[in-house]
Design a protein around this nucleic acid. Structure first.
Lengths: 202, 202
DNA sequence: AAATGAATTGACTCGGCGGTCAGAATTTCT
DNA sequence: AGAAATTCTGACCGCCGAGTCAATTCATTT
């Protein structure tokens, strides 16, 4: 009885510290790349010692993998909830582009890691990521293809256009700075317009 | 007299081996990131020992820096020769996009390194790269702005559109495979069309 | 053949980093 | 208070990779 409560409390605290460590790790990983960041760096950025990190995580790979998991969960959930709406093709694709761009700008660290440090994962993990990326792309491709079938988009191979969209949005992580110049929403809207106009059948 | 000939021959051979090492290094760097590649890896991929690499290069940083130098020279020369033509804005921007995309697909390794491993350089070197990237972007921005002034492009902040273009083209390095599916030229042309249509004033 | 200089080797150092572990400190429960 | 579980510490190990160096091999010249 008490055991359960205690167990839960323990897990809750552990979860909190874990998230704290993951956030700190992600920030550092994003700056200089996973390989260049030591467990000591992560720990001391939080005022901990290295051993604390090893108390909460099995090893460095697990820290990295959990970050990849968080990214996937957040992004795929966002996308799924857009797919569930019943928008017509152009609006659907627009919403997806907007969401993806906002996600990237909202968490620049994540994008840097997700697209740069994949090679640091084990080959099994990499396989999973490759599959997830394919699925993610597929959502965009489906939306685009629907537009082609509806006669509103030009008939370009969907992977070319989808890769272009993702590349364009991802790259914001390299230059966008919060709080100066345009807002993420404005930038995202520009990209939506460029792409939709660029794809529209004349 | 003879000395000169000999000297030249020596330099020529050295230059050859250096290029050989740089090419091998770039390939490996691109695959797994600079940090994950050892000098031994580079050497043995050519059948050499580590010491050979150290005979031709001062250290690992110099190998990396020379690669960055090669990239800059090749890309900026290509761009400059396009700027020298006297094309009207839309055609100019189109040619630039096409060239950049072709460069990326023609040397995927270079792009991976140039945009992912910058953090491995010294801070002085990084400053130079940042400056060069700004100059490179500036060429695109100027072309776009001309189009806006000529009334053919929509009035979007040029850095948004230029970053979008570069991001879109750069991302091909992550998915394009030589010899299956579309050719680099076809892909580049699609991007040119998407962007030009997307930016054209309605 | 001898001498000179270029190219190559392999053994070595040294520092750093991932990961471990025995125990100390702290918190929680009874 | 004392026992039990938990969190945290700091010293330690082993390995790996960057870079060095003295010595050797190879090529060229005279």
């Amino acid at each position: 009885m008490k055991l359960k409560v205690r167990e839960e409390l323990k897990l809750k605290k552990q979860a909190y510290v874990q998230e704290e460590i993951l956030t700190a790790a992600a920030t550092l990983f994003a700056e200089t790349g996973v390989r260049a960041v030591t467990i000591d760096d992560i720990a001391s950025s939080l005022g901990y010692t290295k051993s604390v990190v090893y108390y909460y995580f099995k090893n460095k790979n697990q820290v990295l993998w959990e970050i990849f998991e968080r990214i996937h969960e957040a992004w795929s959930q966002d996308m799924v909830s857009i797919m569930e709406t019943d928008l017509p093709p152009a609006e659907l694709l627009g919403a997806m582009i907007r969401q993806h761009a906002l996600n990237v700008m909202g968490r620049k660290a994540w994008t840097a890691i997700y697209f740069r440090d994949q090679a640091e994962l084990t080959s099994d993990q990499q396989k999973i990521i490759v599959k997830r990326k394919r699925e993610y792309d597929q959502l965009f491709k489906t939306a685009y293809t629907k537009g082609v079938e509806a006669g509103i988009f030009r008939d370009i191979p969907s992977h070319v256009i989808v890769s272009g969209i993702i590349g364009m949005a991802n790259f914001t992580h390299a230059w966008f700075k919060e709080g100066r110049g345009l807002s993420p929403e404005e930038i995202a809207n520009h990209y939506v317009e460029i792409i939709l106009n660029g794809c529209r059948k004349q």
